[in-house]
Design a protein around this nucleic acid. Structure first.
Lengths: 123, 123
DNA sequence: CGTCAAACTCGACACATGTCAAAGCCAGCG
DNA sequence: CGCTGGCTTTGACATGTGTCGAGTTTGACG
């Protein structure tokens, strides 16, 4: 919306970020990539999906365990998972008849570091 | 905030989060509030604005210093700042003819903590 | 008071997004 | 081989979002 936005899957390449937002101004190209990830987290259902995936015992969870946790259709859950996948936040693997999702800690850590704020500023 | 009519900032209530995504599943209502904040960061321009504000010397920056940094109209910058304001990520204060923005570290820290991932996978 | 500049609000538009139903794919099973 | 069940893709629709131009508010300065 602000940009044409690359439609192709995101290439994180060599760690695009790591310096906290509050320390150094983000270059425009990097902002574009990271905004994609934040946008993916900017939906209540996707945030819950992300939480369920990241906190799953064994580090992975089957779609068949995710879907019944919501009132929306399986089609829509699949759509949201695709968004998370294309944002580089999760990874999918098919085993037998089921598809398992797991979180990608690298990007999560980068986003976390980006929002980090050092010592509470003394008034 | 001082006087600026203050649209309605979202009600963060008493610290809605703090437990990392990967440790505990997020309750639906909390996800709704936090997704709002992430959505606000989910735009390249807003992410850059956030960065410029948070990294500004003195902790604050004038809109007149933000606007010329982009190619979009001042109207649109104003719109994006409103989104950040309503998400609880920044605070605005009018002094003389200018409006100054500063980051709200509390929410930033919460979001950062939410995305935190413990020990790098040993295996 | 009149004027000017900074920033916000309003109205309108094009495009993106969330949602579902229906159809397609894949793997296992009879 | 032909089913059946799990998941994704496709197509379609209503709503949301980014963008701008024009108008409005606020404060400063003659």
């Amino acid at each position: 919306m602000s940009k044409p936005a690359t439609a192709s899957p995101i290439d994180l390449g060599p760690a695009p970020c790591c310096t906290p937002l509050a320390q150094e101004r983000i270059p425009a190209p990097v902002a574009g990539v990271l905004a994609h990830a934040f946008k993916a987290l900017g939906d209540p259902i996707r945030l819950q999906l992300m939480s369920m995936i990241a906190s799953a015992p064994g580090g992975e969870i089957c779609v068949c365990d995710l879907t019944p946790a919501f009132t929306i259709s399986g089609t829509t859950v699949s759509h949201h998972l695709k968004v998370l996948r294309e944002a580089g936040l999760v990874d999918a693997e098919r085993r037998a008849s089921w598809v398992y999702y797991r979180a990608r800690p690298v990007l999560m850590r980068q986003l976390s570091a980006l929002l980090a704020v050092d010592a509470p500023v003394p008034a």
